[in-house]
Computed example of a mutant assay.
Amino acid sequence: MTQAIYIDCHAGIAGDMFLAALVDLGADPEYITAELQKLPIDTFDLSFTKQVKQGINAQTLTIDFTEAHHHRKAADIYKLITESTLPERVKTRSTQIFTEIAQAEAKIHGMPIEEVHFHEVGAMDSIIDIIGCCLALEDLNIDSIYCSTIPTGHGRIHIAHGIYPVPAPATLEILTGVPLANFDVESELTTPTGAAIVKSLATHFGPMPAIIPTNIAYGAGTKDFDFPNVLRLVQFTASAAQQDTVQVLECQIDDMTGETLGDFLDSVLAKGALDVYYTPISMKKNRPAIALTVICELANKPFFEDYLLLHTTTLGVRSSTVQRRVLERDFDTLSTQYGDITIKIAKLGSKTIKIKPEFSDMRRIAHETGQPLHQLYSEISAEIHQHYGHLN
């Protein structure tokens, strides 16, 4: 069981909105400020105040600098983080976020990541927002992060390189592979920093999973609209048995050989699909065929749609978003007369409900000993029952 949050990006996301919402959730602003002030950065002051946005009482962040601040190269920021005394997970998460931004800017401007020197990464407020958010997550002991689809807005904005359409080039590049929401607002709703935070830290994108909320918080944006410009966080206790959302891709095929279909199954799993399977069907003109189903993470939908179209003979792919629920899984090693065997243990909350030997180990032993697999399963199952006792 771990602590988790769902980021509801109703009005988009920016670094200051996320940090303000985490403080509203209960993160200690004094701890965050004290840790940030240990870093060799410009002098600053953080203040958190409540503000009502279209009827929603939300936390607002203000950053004050006592002197003009300068921009830094991405390489300098990596060094700053590496040489700091920040907690290790804060270092890891902060580096991941800065890397997302640096990679996007490097691609856009055609330069090595180490040489990226631009306002979005180097600006002091971005450094404080990103590292501050990671400190707040650590203070709250948040392990898992879920996120809604991301609205970006539309229109035009002034950035360091001139007037550009919304979303800004870096924002759109960072959000590659992330599901976007259609929200018709002529304004920048999601910043490069906000995009990088969710791209780096969120493991699931889509509707809110089936959860029991334990805490709800709001972080306010600086702009005013005719809707609440707030970021909502929902805290809950998560386990691997929690519902989440996955993408199901399907197509029908009647003109591929068994050899090529078998090779495709191996290759798509190697590319990171959660599951893939074939179902025998009958198509028009009485043709025997198969229905090919690939299950993947929401963010990987575009990649696997392309992969299906490129590596099979199908002319189209159907797609649907579904809920799934899986048990929390653990592994143990059981010493038997045949050697060590990996045991898979499935739990629902704190209760163990299934224990079984790993099939690959069982198959290996059956081949080595010449013993029928079903007899081997009976022997090992008896040893499992003796060793682990009744399920609890």
Rank of each mutant, 00 (worst) to 15 (best):
S360V: 11
V166I: 15
I216C: 09
T66Y: 14
D42Y: 14
L292C: 11
D184P: 13
G370S: 07
A20C: 09
I97C: 05
I63R: 08
A11C: 14
I113Q: 13
G370W: 06
H109R: 07
C147W: 08
E188N: 04
L80Y: 01
Q37R: 15
Q235A: 14
T152S: 00
A382C: 06
S320Q: 13
I145W: 07
S378E: 15
A160V: 04
P302E: 03
V268M: 10
R287D: 01
F303Q: 02
A58V: 12
T49F: 09
M283G: 05
Y218W: 10
D263Q: 15
G26C: 05
T60A: 12
S335K: 14
I97W: 02
A160F: 08
K199A: 14
L39V: 06
K91A: 00
K351P: 04
A136E: 07
D28Y: 09
T190N: 03
C296P: 11
I108D: 00
V166F: 00
L140G: 01
D254G: 04
S148V: 01
Y31V: 13
A210W: 04
V116Q: 00
P228D: 04
I163R: 06
L376K: 10
T352C: 09
T203E: 10
N229I: 07
I150W: 00
D139E: 10
F264N: 06
D306S: 15
V276W: 06
L373C: 04
F18M: 15
P165F: 03
A202V: 05
G162C: 06
T245R: 09
V178K: 03
I211H: 10
T237C: 13
F118N: 13
A289W: 08
A238W: 13
P112M: 10
T260D: 14
V248R: 14
I345L: 13
R363P: 02
V198Q: 03
V23S: 05
T279W: 02
A195P: 07
D64Q: 14
L80E: 00
V317S: 03
E259P: 12
A291R: 15
K107Q: 10
H71G: 13
V178R: 01
F236T: 03
A270P: 02
D24K: 11
